[in-house]
Design a protein around this nucleic acid. Structure first.
Lengths: 110, 110
DNA sequence: TGAGCTTATAGATGATTGTCTATCTAAGAA
DNA sequence: TTCTTAGATAGACAATCATCTATAAGCTCA
């Protein structure tokens, strides 16, 4: 087998240099895993489409038909990765989209 | 407690109508879950940045330092949701990005 | 056909996750 | 302070998942 044939047949190298750094991949993975849940996608959509771009737990438990602790759990997951912000106002706690973090995901897939 | 006060205090409704449909949320969830793994993000980046926008298993096992069956497993996950396409050419199997599917994610976060 | 290489599948295992019930904390009203 | 409502935390459990080793399947070439 000559060199030319080898060149045609061998499976090309050159992947190493273009590999996304592992730590960067893990950061994005955490962010995307938080978003990649059907209930959390619905929560994000509900926040995004609401009038003031925010929602409290009581807005979500009804439509999503899940227990209050489960909704709180999902909101915590989302806020832990910074995709939503948390603000207590009196009795209620309001969650809003973090547009900067949202933009980071948009950029990844642009 | 009068009506005005009630109006000020009650946590606003109006989420139900703006809720992302559950089946749509589940579809996107499957797609995003496939992508939201650090190794699979690295695989996608390596494919995207390679010269011919494609890679075979043998391109990936070395740089990613994972066993060949594990790489195959990840590639299967990615192709199952249609984010990459599979094509056998002789001995090797080449995987390439599906730009339409990629665009669907981009649109979600735009 | 048989040898040798590339990729896929099967099965096992430890880790993570979504959901629940029960309980606790925080804040306002009386 | 006490009651009530909103939200968070703790702990449990079934399901899913990333990875491995062992093995099978597909392809090329002699």
């Amino acid at each position: 087998m000559n060199n030319l044939k080898l060149e045609l047949l061998e499976c090309a190298p050159g992947a190493e240099s273009s590999m996304m750094a592992r730590n960067k991949a893990e950061e994005f993975s955490e962010l995307l895993k938080a978003v990649a849940d059907p209930t959390r996608l619905q929560i994000l959509a509900m926040i995004a489409k609401s009038d003031q771009k925010e929602a409290c737990v009581c807005n979500l438990t009804g439509p999503l038909r899940l227990s209050q602790p489960t909704i709180s759990h999902h909101l915590k997951k989302l806020s832990e990765v910074g995709i939503i912000d948390r603000e207590r106002r009196g009795t209620w706690v309001w969650y809003s989209l973090n547009t900067e973090r949202w933009g980071q995901i948009a950029k990844l897939f642009s």
